[in-house]
Amino acid sequence: MTTRIDTRFAELKTQGRSAFVTYVMAGDPDLTTSLEIVKALPKAGADVIELGIPFTDPMADGPSIQAAGLRALKIGMTLRKTLELVRDFRKDDNVTPLVLMGYYNPIYIYGVDKFLADAKTSGVDGLIIVDLPPEEDDELCIPALKAGLNFIRLATPTTDDKRLPAVLANTSGFVYYVSIAGITGAAAADANAVGEAVARIKRHTKLPICVGFGIRTPEAARAIAEKADGSVVGTALVDALKNSLDAEGRATAKTVNAVAELTAALAQGVKGAKQAAE
């Protein structure tokens, strides 16, 4: 089975280019604006979209993404509406890979089988669920693979060579390397250390490796793009969105553009990278 994720990384490989992966929170700051933002991302140069599922207690996220989730929850965002948003996005775009990223509880409460069926028909390609390590693969990972969705696993600086095979065993689509031990948006990733880590993981897998956490600028994105198959930017985009809101936290005429412009600048950075190391 080939997903949009597999197809996209295969295309990029023939172009000799690293992927640019963007993260935004579903429903931030409201449903209509959020859909417009997601639609604008591919046009601005995003190769893969990660869409955050809002959760009250995002334990691996820094203050920016926590706040984005709370903005979304405040306007009544739910997992069901997140899937509807994906369905609306898919009306105009049937090629850009879309990955849902979040925490397990909303999915568990929605019901795993029903969620996987609804996610698949909505046009979701993959899942990144932060609090489901390989030790809990029976919960969602295995059923997701059977349902035809990629389950994208996080590898971190604490994942040593001994543990990597377990982490990679049921991973598909791509591997998300978390470049720092920490929460989203905290420290800056060191490109050389990232390069070594990517090389280490590549000894264990043929999957593309994308790097995230701590990439904020076009320069940083370019540096990472030279070391990895993709770079992920989330917090910087969420911050750009937040800075465009009015005093009550509502969208303004600037909001969609603020995210699209930063996406375009970051995408330029990635595209300016020398061919990714093989």
């Binding site: 030790e135 994942t159 040593d160 543990r163």
Partner: peptide, 18 residues
């Protein structure tokens, strides 16, 4: 695996798992 019936488990980010 840390389960009491269906309860318990290890639902943590990969960074913490090791």
């Amino acid at each position: 695996r840390g389960h009491f019936g269906i309860f318990g488990g290890r639902f943590v980010a990969e960074t913490l798992m090791p």
